[in-house]
Design a protein around this nucleic acid. Structure first.
Length: 271
DNA sequence: ATAATCACCTGCTCGC
DNA sequence: TGCGAGCAGGTGATTA
C-alpha cells in the first residue's frame, strides 16, 4: 500500500484529468471495504463539481461543491483515470464518471481501503482530527518529535509509523529514514537525543521528497493515476534487502520483525 | 495513557 | 502440479 509518496503521486496523477468536472455517474460494485461505503454517497455528489483533490496524511480528500469525499488506499488500493468504456475486473470496486467522459476507478484487492462521505466540515472527523504533523511541513521538526517521544519506551520505528506522531510514514520509508539517519529501528524513543531526532526528521523529509520525485515505490502493483509504476524501488537502501549487502559498508543487512512488520537495518551503519 | 496484539481481505511465493 | 504456511505498502479496535 501506498505510503505518502504513492498517495501524493496518485493525487498529482489524477488531478488534471478530473478537477473542474462534474460527477455524472457513480458505480459501486462492492461497497464493503474497510468500512461500508457511505450509504447514498451518490446522492451527496451527483452533479457536483470537483473543485480540488487535497491530501492529509495518507488520505485523499475530494472537495466537491457539495462537500468532501475521503478516500484511503489501504494496503493494496489504487486510483486510475480511464475512459468510461473501460471494462471492470474483479477488484474494480468503484467508478466515478465525470462530465468530460473520464472515469476515476478505485481498485483494491484486499479491500482495506475506504471511501467515506465527510460532508462540509471534514477536519472534525475522527479520522482526521488527531493526526500528527505533515512530514513535509515546517511544523514537523526534530524538537517536535523529541517532545512527543520523551518518556516513552516503544521502538522508534513504530513511533514514526504512528500517524499521531508524524503522518505519511509507513513501513518502507520508516526503514529507509532510520537507515539514512543511522538509528537502529528498535531503539526506545525516550533514549534518543534531540540531535538525532533532528537528523531523523531531516532524512524523513529527504526520503519522502525524493520518492515523490520518482513517482513513488512500486513493489508489485502500485501504479500512479496515469497507470505508470513508481521508480523509487531501485533507490531503497534497506527495505526488501534483508540478507543482502549494505550499499554503504557492504556488511550483511539484518532482517527482523517488529510487531508483525519486517524491519531491515545495518548493524554497522545504524547504532 | 501506553504498548502489544488482533482483525479486516486477497493474492502471491515458497517449501514440501 | 498441488497444498498449506507465511507474507504483503495500513490502521482502528481490543486487550493488558
Amino acid at each position: 500500500m501506498p505510503e505518502l509518496p504513492e498517495v501524493e503521486t496518485t493525487r498529482r496523477g489524477i488531478t488534471p484529468h478530473i478537477t473542474g468536472q462534474h460527477l455524472v455517474k457513480l458505480i459501486i460494485r462492492q461497497p464493503q471495504l474497510r468500512w461500508l461505503i457511505t450509504e447514498n454517497l451518490g446522492q451527496h455528489i451527483m452533479g457536483a463539481r470537483l473543485e480540488v483533490i487535497d491530501r492529509r496524511a495518507k488520505y485523499l480528500l475530494f472537495k466537491f461543491s457539495s462537500g468532501y469525499v475521503l478516500i484511503h488506499l489501504g494496503m493494496s488500493g489504487s486510483l486510475r483515470i480511464l475512459d468510461n468504456t473501460a471494462t471492470a475486473g474483479k477488484h474494480d470496486h468503484v467508478d466515478f464518471i465525470f462530465s468530460n467522459n473520464r472515469l476515476l476507478r478505485f481498485t483494491d484487492p484486499r479491500r482495506f481501503g475506504a471511501i467515506l462521505w465527510l460532508g462540509e466540515n471534514p477536519w472534525q472527523h475522527k479520522l482526521l482530527k488527531n493526526l500528527g504533523p505533515e512530514p513535509l511541513s515546517e511544523h514537523f521538526t526534530g524538537f517536535d518529535l523529541y517532545q512527543r517521544a520523551k518518556g516513552r519506551k516503544l521502538a522508534v520505528k513504530q513511533f514514526i509509523m504512528d500517524q499521531h506522531n508524524v503522518t505519511g510514514v509507513g513501513n518502507i520509508y520508516a526503514n529507509e529514514a532510520l537507515f539514512l539517519s543511522g538509528i537502529r529501528p528498535g531503539t526506545q524513543t525516550g533514549r534518543i537525543s534531540i540531535k538525532r531526532y533532528e537528523r531523523l526528521v531531516e532524512q524523513i523529509k529527504r526520503v519522502l521528497t525524493q520518492a515523490i520525485a520518482q513517482g513513488g515505490t512500486t513493489l508489485r502493483d502500485f501504479v500512479g493515476g496515469d497507470g505508470k509504476p513508481g521508480y523509487f524501488k531501485q533507490q531503497l537502501f534497506v527495505y526488501g534487502r534483508g540478507g543482502q549487502a549494505c550499499k554503504r559498508c557492504h556488511k550483511t543487512l539484518k532482517e527482523i520483525r517488529h510487531s508483525g512488520r519486517s524491519t531491515v537495518y545495518c548493524l554497522n551503519c545504524q547504532k
